[in-house]
Design a protein around this nucleic acid. Structure first.
Lengths: 202, 202, 202, 202
DNA sequence: CATGAATGAGAGTTCATTCAT
DNA sequence: TATGAATGAACTCTCATTCAT
């Protein structure tokens, strides 16, 4: 589907592919995946529906391509985390970098959050779930106390949902992100310390 | 729509209404709201679609009725919380009772969680959002430090998502619920203490 | 999809199902299966497309139902033939009765003849092929001389194609049918006699 | 469309035109004319759809060109037959040469056989029909007994369908062809003799 | 209480074809 | 010679909903 090796070069003149992705994500996030029809996407772009099918094989593929293009950094982060020793420092760094990565892909993640049911039946459902489990496996120590496991899971969801739910709280977005990050870091740190202690005690 | 006062409502002879709600929630939770068609619901019940329309005016109304029937205790809880002084004790009790209430309506809440985009456009979208904001207003002190605000929001989402994401961790469900509750209580308590201190300091 | 045991009783008042089958076969035979759209069928019936889907699950199912309804006698004939000893008399009777059965379902058979490629990919493709092979196995003696095998196959196709290609020859249809039948019977008889002789010789 | 006088036409450099015809016939025969899309043809050739349009004006034209290129010998045969006296010897020779010509264009004839409905609406539909009628007019004596007319028509269809339906009978293809030819010749001969006799008798 | 029949709107998808480059 | 991009029309099919009986 066109282009040279270089992924950047889908822009010979009229970068339709990119524009489709942008508008699609916009509408998917606004109305949900199922509720958004290809007609709407095409209309907003002032092209015909068939154009969408020139650039993407199916509706699902539009979403897949957005997901893959935008979440590559996160995939790499998790890959990196997997190979590190699961020390407190690693966990803290993962949390810090994950928080940043989420910021860059906020609309997509809001979409994923709000359309889990729809996404679950799609090809990316599995991929997304695997990533979340990958992240969990890095942060959560399966030997730890149940409460500490919850703390780590909570840290993840704090980052996912936190920023979105701070939308109607006044303040600089970067400040909010830092606040969310601090809570998440706290949770992970508490979990780690408590686990360490109970390990010493035993 | 013809319910009687008592709790055993609609079992005069053929409790169809109840059965529709049960099957509908099952399918909505499994496949999502949009993906579930009335045909499917009718087929699984072995009745005709027209039967559904005898008991409910629209597809949306089926969901609304489920929501209203199941979340009345939560509504009352929030109503109660609103009228209490926003002390630490109140917050802790709200969290405790909310955690219990969630357990009783787990499938519905999982559904609401995973179908936010779809639900947002529905009549209950607004209602649900209002409740969440109501809960937030009880737990969160708008004067508090941003970090502490996040802690309280995090407490809410820990309860919502925590249990679902502990599904593939072994252990007694009630133990898990208590672990989740402990983390949520912790977060609220930390937020309250720190807010108190900074209030004193200032 | 309605109706009691009795297949005749799809006619409570407005026998739409039957009318769909009639019009569909008409158009399928006229224009071919692929070329005939459900829109056309619906328009000619002055109903909406959705009506077709109320009565039949898919376009293919419309054809399948026509096929099954119309070719039951032929199926039974072949079933009967299979159980008889493969004598000349049996073969002659099969040919005679097959010729009659074909007359009753002429439009369908013309359709099958002319849309083999389309039909092959459909569910009835297999069924139709099996029937033809079943008929062949009754008429053709696999031990016989190759030429005699061809004679029997030729008898079958004479009946299939013969009548259609006599359309622009003047004469009474029943006379034509009898002429076709005579040629087919001749071929089968020749094949049988010659086989018998060679059997005697050997 | 730019062919040179000689038979090795279009192989100057990249005999694309020929390759398109080959692949197209392959797919048409396999799946049917309507079911085969230009996209598929292009994909199997690893060229773009636009290439097809460089070489042929329409989808129909691809088929027409195949038909014209492959059936020229048959056209000439019929032309020749038309000019001969309609004696038994002529008929026998026509049958013999037609049987050979069919062998050389088996895939195309199988296609024509199985896609009559689709082809009927195309430009070659008329041409093909005319040829068949031409052949019929040579073989069939309109004054003859109806049964004898059927015999001649049967001879034609024996050749068309016979070989295809002998596919799963073991044996050398050339032997099969000869068997088919023998039956066809027989039919024509019987028809002629009987007609002669009845002519004499009358 | 319940059903069979029908509807209108719209979904995602595919097609043959065109045209500037 | 060839291609990438786009089009408009049509396709099969599904949906929530209505209504006379």
């Amino acid at each position: 589907m066109g282009g040279t090796m270089d992924g950047t070069r889908q822009r010979r003149r009229g970068n339709t592919r990119q524009r489709i992705q942008d508008v699609a994500l916009e509408l998917f996030a606004e109305q949900g995946y199922e509720k958004t029809s290809l007609r709407e996407i095409a209309e907003r772009l002032e092209v015909t529906k068939a154009v969408l099918y020139y650039h993407f094989k199916t509706k699902e593929e539009i979403l897949v391509s957005i997901f893959e293009d935008l979440t590559r950094p996160i995939e790499e982060l998790i890959e990196w985390g997997r190979r590190q020793p699961h020390t407190l420092e690693t966990k803290q760094e993962i949390v810090r970098r994950y928080s940043e990565a989420l910021m860059d892909t906020a609309p997509l993640f809001r979409f994923m959050q709000e359309n889990q049911a729809a996404v679950r039946e799609l090809r990316i459902g599995e991929v997304f779930k695997d990533r979340m489990l990958g992240l969990r496996d890095i942060l959560v120590d399966p030997e730890a106390d149940l409460v500490d496991q919850v703390r780590c899971i909570s840290a993840m969801f704090t980052m996912h949902a936190g920023m979105y739910h701070l939308q109607d709280v006044e303040g600089d977005p970067e400040d909010k992100r830092k606040a969310v990050l601090e809570v998440a870091t706290d949770l992970v740190t508490q979990a780690h310390r408590s686990a360490g202690r109970s390990g010493t005690d035993a």
